[in-house]
């Protein structure tokens, strides 16, 4: 019972702090580029403003368009609930393993791209087709990276994998380094950051995520944007807890939990800084170079898997 309560509180915390994470990256990026920048809590203001606004629906919008924000948002929350944030003692982790987690994310993406095409504007269709192209290339790399981690821990459950990685002495696993590099590349592509997509633009021919949600307004738009920020936080949590499992609580004791909370915040802060630096140093790629980028991610994940088999097992 205690565990379930903890899991629910933890998920709610992540949902609540997700806009702050997105705002923080933006703020750091602005500071790095010598700009004033909105404060990190600006996304909360935006969400609040949007939720008060009236919803404007296109005449051609079907029920898919109306339910999509709710589906995308709730599915992303379910996906977040599976990921260990502070402690690996998570009863919700039994709900889904990494493969189902990837499935949740693709379900959200499926509805997102359906909603993009639903109204029938050319921008939405373009955005959906690009999103599907990129995710169809990113998903094999993501799964391959997860499989390598799973083979290391002999389990596909995220909690078990993290618990396995955080125990034991320091061992230099080549497979882990490669698959985490692959994971980072995929995460950047999937969350629509530079160099694949630019989260800062709103009207540009090459946008992907923004093109799909262009027709949304009011609370629907708020939910869609919140889901996108949640997805960024979800991938960040996966990256920091899988690559550096240091500090993740293995028990539910208050001291361990406090340590876990502090360490995960520090790690997220560092990752936000890393993202901001990358986005400042890099320019957005041409859309047609995205397959090359994701090919590199796939090769890295594949190399991780192969170096696990060749170098580590026997």
């Amino acid at each position: 019972m205690n565990g379930w309560l903890f899991a629910i509180v933890q998920t709610l915390c992540v949902v609540f702090f997700a806009p702050f994470m997105a705002g923080l990256v933006k703020w750091m990026k602005c500071k790095l580029q010598n700009r004033q920048g909105p404060p990190p809590w600006q996304p909360y203001r935006n969400l609040l403003k949007l939720s008060r606004k009236q919803v404007v629906l296109a005449d051609t919008a079907s029920f898919v368009f109306r339910i999509a924000p709710y589906v995308v948002f709730s599915v992303t929350i379910v996906a977040v609930s599976v990921v260990p944030v502070i402690s690996v003692q998570l009863p919700t982790a039994a709900l889904a393993d990494v493969i189902v987690l990837v499935g949740f994310l693709s379900l959200a993406r499926f509805f997102l791209s359906l909603a993009g095409m639903d109204v029938g504007t050319s921008f939405g269709g373009m955005g959906s087709s690009r999103e599907v192209t990129i995710s169809s290339l990113a998903e094999p790399a993501l799964l391959m990276a997860f499989f390598t981690l799973a083979m290391n821990a002999s389990s596909t459950n995220v909690s078990t994998v993290i618990a396995h990685l955080s125990q034991g002495s320091l061992i230099l696993y080549p497979s882990l380094i490669f698959s985490s590099l692959g994971l980072i590349l995929v995460a950047i592509a999937e969350t629509g950051r530079i160099p694949i997509d630019n989260p800062a633009t709103h009207l540009e021919l090459t946008m992907i995520h923004e093109a799909m949600i262009l027709e949304y307004s009011g609370r629907h738009l708020a939910l869609m944007e919140w889901a996108a920020m949640l997805k960024l936080t979800l991938y960040s949590l996966l990256i920091v807890n899988l690559i550096v499992p240091l500090g993740v609580a293995l028990t539910l004791r208050p001291g361990d939990l406090l340590l876990g909370a502090v360490s995960v915040s520090c790690k997220l802060l560092l990752l936000a800084l890393f993202l901001a630096v990358v986005e400042t140093a890099q320019a957005k790629m041409r859309l047609f170079r995205a397959p090359q980028y994701l090919g590199l991610a796939f090769i890295l994940s594949l190399l991780g898997m192969m170096s696990h088999i060749i170098l580590e097992v026997r």
Binding site: P174, L303, L311
Partner: peptide
């Protein structure tokens, strides 16, 4: 032979081996 049974320098050599393979792939691309 599990990698966990090796000493740290040997693990580093395995790591370098994997990196050398990666650099080959990079050269190819």
């Amino acid at each position: 032979m599990l990698i966990a049974t090796l000493s740290l320098p040997e693990q580093v050599v395995l790591m370098l081996a994997a990196l050398i393979l990666l650099s080959s792939f990079l050269m190819l691309a």
